[in-house]
Design a protein around this nucleic acid. Structure first.
Lengths: 159, 159
DNA sequence: TTAGATGTTCTGCTCGACAGACTATCGTGT
DNA sequence: ACACGATAGTCTGTCGAGCAGAACATCTAA
């Protein structure tokens, strides 16, 4: 017999829908920002993280390093970030916010906070906090570390 | 002053990371299945949903209808689904699982259940259930309906 | 100093996704 | 019965995002 699950109970399905929905409203809110929602994440990371070399940013945001190059190109062209030579490693560039970048980020944060509440509207404020916290805890584990600890391999029981 | 948020507290960041992580392990598990993880979702939907016309499937899974066409082409070529004429509407095709498709789905469901647990490993089983339930509730609202109810527009307070 | 590893950038290519057109069919109104 | 617009599915063409791979500068360790 086939199992009684429905699509709605598939984690991948829910994750995909929510991520897409969030992406859509985020795109509206950051309209005009180079790099779209990811450009925003670069700004956040550049503002808060200490070791903001390009590679570190790339892995934190989950993008290819070659992508990070032109992402930052555009943000720099827009005057929102600067590339500063890393005093400790002359190969690396540290990405720092300009004053304009800080102002822009401040505005974007407000808009996105509203947009996110909109996406999470079906939940109560308390539930929203729970969801945020849980997602964060899952997201915070290093993906490489996670894939290193082997997926269970005994799949020998029936449906 | 810039606000004190870190990237980790950004919902978009967490959603992206978790969705990517899930996608990656899902891809490993469904290796060889036409259409990858989305092919799997088609199988699930075709097995459980009643009105499984191609368009309905497409919007449920959040893909373009032209994409759904060749997605189903491939699954059909692999002998996992069939296109049956809809008795009520001769324009539409109902997508139904073949016997082979049912067996494959059964196997995939087991593998994916394990893989998902692996992604959610940082959470306790109870927390996993909570996360699943919350995500599902957010995902279940119709995206069009959601975007229809206007995003709040008073953004007039400072950071 | 040399050899290999690492950060960044550039080039070229591939593949997926969307727009738009087209066919067949539905449903409605007259 | 007919005509019209809307809808399901398919097909074609095109575009752009993202990756592999190479090149270059620099670091680190032997």
């Amino acid at each position: 017999m086939t199992t009684p699950q429905r699509v709605e109970s598939d984690l991948g399905w829910a994750l995909g829908r929510v991520a897409r929905a969030h992406l859509r409203v985020a795109q509206e809110q950051v309209a005009g920002l180079p790099g779209g929602p990811r450009g925003y994440q670069v700004l956040v990371a550049a503002a808060r993280e200490e070791s903001s070399t390009q590679l570190a940013l790339a892995q934190k945001l989950g993008v290819d390093r070659t992508v990070m190059t032109y992402l930052i190109d555009e943000l720099q062209a827009a005057g929102l970030v600067e590339r500063r030579p890393d005093p400790a490693d002359r190969r690396a560039r540290r990405v720092v916010l300009t004053e304009a970048g800080g102002a822009r980020l401040c505005d974007l944060e407000r808009r996105l906070r509203e947009a996110e509440q909109h996406v999470l509207a079906p939940l109560t404020p308390e539930e929203q906090d729970v969801l945020r916290a849980l997602l964060r805890r899952v997201a915070e584990v290093d993906p490489d570390t996670a894939s290193a600890c082997e997926v269970a391999r005994d799949l020998a029981q029936e449906c």
